[in-house]
Simulated assay, not measured.
Amino acid sequence: MKNCLFGFLMLFTVMASQAQNDTIKRNNFGKNEIKINSFFLLLGVFEPSYERNLSEQSSVGVSAFIPFDRENIDMDINYYISPYYRIFFGEKYAAGFFLEGFGMLNSIDHQYYVNRNNYTEIKDNAVTDFALGFGLGGKWMTSGGFVFEVNGGIGRNLFNTNTEDDNNILVGKFGFNLGYRF
């Protein structure tokens, strides 16, 4: 009887110490992340992101797309600001495979042609629009708090899409983000 009681007490002690370690690990993670899209930075675009982890399985964030080197890249987009919500399916805290829903306020250069007396003139016009979309990706985190993320998504502009030659109905976002969780 003493052996059974001693064995039960040892088992309970081991389980309790394991539970304490899990709680410490789970609460040790920060809830804020700052990231930058390293791929776009090489192309001449600054895209920072801020993300707040709400729970183990969800987070909200916002990213901004700001081109700074227009001479070396051929892009129609002037800027975008994109808030998003993510649901994670990994076993780590706010990491692993995720699905994302996003909104995007964007400004796109729209070119159109004007015909006047057998002369065709090309005009530029900046069109501001709002898109809704979805995406997916994966997030990995080191024990030191550094974050690596790969994501991609597609959305549809909701306004200013009534012209026949408009090829800016769909918007995309993707990235190879590097950052830090604190």
Rank of each mutant, 00 (worst) to 15 (best):
N3A: 13
N3H: 12
F6N: 11
G7A: 10
G7Y: 04
F8A: 12
F12K: 08
F12S: 09
V14N: 13
M15A: 08
A16K: 07
S17L: 07
S17Q: 11
A19K: 07
N21V: 03
D22P: 03
G30W: 05
N32P: 01
I34L: 12
I34D: 03
K35T: 03
I36R: 05
S38C: 09
F39P: 01
F40H: 12
L42H: 05
L43N: 12
V45D: 08
S49T: 08
E56F: 09
V62N: 01
S63F: 01
F65R: 01
F68T: 09
E71L: 11
D74G: 11
I81D: 03
S82L: 02
S82Y: 01
P83R: 00
P83C: 02
I87W: 10
E91N: 14
G96P: 05
G96V: 08
L99Q: 13
N106P: 04
S107I: 04
V114D: 11
N115R: 14
N115T: 13
N117F: 15
D124M: 03
N125G: 13
A126Y: 10
A131I: 00
L132C: 08
G133A: 09
S143F: 04
G145D: 04
V150P: 00
G155R: 00
G155K: 00
R156L: 14
L158I: 13
T161Y: 06
T161V: 12
N162Y: 15
T163H: 03
F174I: 00
G175D: 01
G179E: 00
F182I: 09
